[in-house]
Design a binder for these strands. Structure first.
Lengths: 250, 250
DNA sequence: TCGAATTTGTGCGTATGTATC
DNA sequence: GGATACATACGCACAAATTCG
């Protein structure tokens, strides 16, 4: 019966969650079965089931039919540094950022011309249907896929120049700022809009995740004198990485 | 009984979902009630309930007790600006950022002294068990909860000063940088680490979500001369907001 | 190899509390 | 107040997967 404050299934879920986060139920161990939960907490089958479902929705545990409900492993997310700003070397709080900030690993890409969709056109401040160069990237770090990226550049900017294809020529793979500089486009600003959502099936396939995993999505746009010259969607598995920004104050 | 392929509740949920996305059940309309679903699809009460729960977990509908289950509007995620950097006024690409960057709405908070956990101690570069001032915030924008925040400040920094309690005194609610300036602590750097995960049940209760919804989590730390003076966890519902960073290049 | 026990996942019927209309 | 509808809760049943003797 409802006697106290919150629903019984949340109380049970909360207690189990506490045991998981404080380590008394470490990864790979089995939760008490539904029957055991029923006994231990003095609740019904439905409440025990609902409590497990809460923890499953939170990604803390996974149910294996016929076997049990197991505590998931939660790797410490690594950092991906996103800021051009660098602190004075030797400043103690930033050791790790320096350590893992520049290890970029390997990547693959392929480019194709395309027409700007409505969404891309809006981000690049061009008209839908205008020609753009669309490039897809897969970034790997120590063999593990860590990041997907799709970028769009208006052909009005790079068309008929040596840097039209981001990964070809002497400046291949050099980054947007350097490539644009080569054609006298001075990139001076970048915006990154960070969001998150459940990963799509194809994304999780590429990233090595399982359905239901969360991804962080960054919509990045480079500007030159207030005009967008490149925009990209960056997709990162949220269980393995965090995105670090380092900003000066004022 | 299960005769075909997938569970009954998924079949019902799938049919209702189709009607929602193709527009035959537009936003703000009411779903068939549990009883009606039971009749129309020839299923039990439990199946009808479970089907509604699936749609609620996907954020497509919201249940209002005593009234009905309503199709949600799917808002374009709004921006929350996180950068101190401001572009020269009038620069066209940044109109919206200027427009909604500073509308902070209302908030509530309460503070209590506590001992630093291992995780907090690491972030503040102090010892676990050291005294900290812990403050919880709930931010609202037009009545809707948009953000939860929990901050920790070492009492070694603010103890026995007028700004020990973030929300009291003449500088209450003024922000970390201003408050610290009042006690001659010059905040010069901030790091923000953005991650994402399924929201916890309590968080989603406060944010008006449903178990399984994704939240963006920002771990923010302010530094003064390389020393951490405040750290906070900011929790934002990912379906309604994005976090915008605006960075100078170079 | 077989079978029994366990466990999850799904499904059913019902009852009660409570919010809304 | 009454009717409606959602939210929580109880107890039960069965299929499928797994485990283990």
């Amino acid at each position: 019966m409802t006697f106290g404050e919150q629903p019984a299934y949340l109380r049970v879920a909360g207690d189990l969650r506490k045991k998981i986060v404080d380590g008394s139920l470490p990864p790979h161990t089995r939760l008490p079965s539904q029957a055991r939960i029923r006994e231990e907490y003095g609740v019904s089958d439905t409440v025990a089931l609902e409590a497990r479902k809460v923890l499953m929705a939170e990604g803390l545990v996974e149910g294996r039919s016929g076997s049990g409900t197991y505590v998931r492993e939660r790797p410490v997310p690594r950092r991906i540094a996103r800021s051009g700003f660098r602190p004075p070397s030797g400043a103690t709080p930033f050791r790790q950022e320096q350590a893992d900030g520049e290890a970029r690993g390997t990547w693959e890409s392929n480019s194709a011309q395309a027409e700007a969709s409505v969404a891309v056109a809006e981000r690049l401040d061009i008209r839908p249907g205008d020609r753009v160069m669309c490039t897809r990237y897969v970034f790997r770090d120590a063999g593990e896929t860590m990041m997907l990226s799709t970028s769009w550049e208006p052909l009005a900017v790079t068309g008929r120049t040596p840097v039209m294809l981001p990964e070809e020529g002497p400046l291949g793979g050099m980054g947007v700022v350097e490539r644009m500089a080569a054609i006298d486009v001075v990139v001076d600003n970048v915006t990154e809009e960070v969001g998150a959502r459940p990963g799509l099936a194809e994304e999780l396939l590429a990233l090595g995740g399982v359905p239901g995993h969360v991804v962080v999505v960054i919509q990045r746009t480079y500007y030159a004198s207030g005009r967008p010259v490149e925009t990209a969607d960056v997709v990162i598995p949220a269980d393995r990485y965090r995105v670090a920004y380092h900003l000066p104050v004022k």
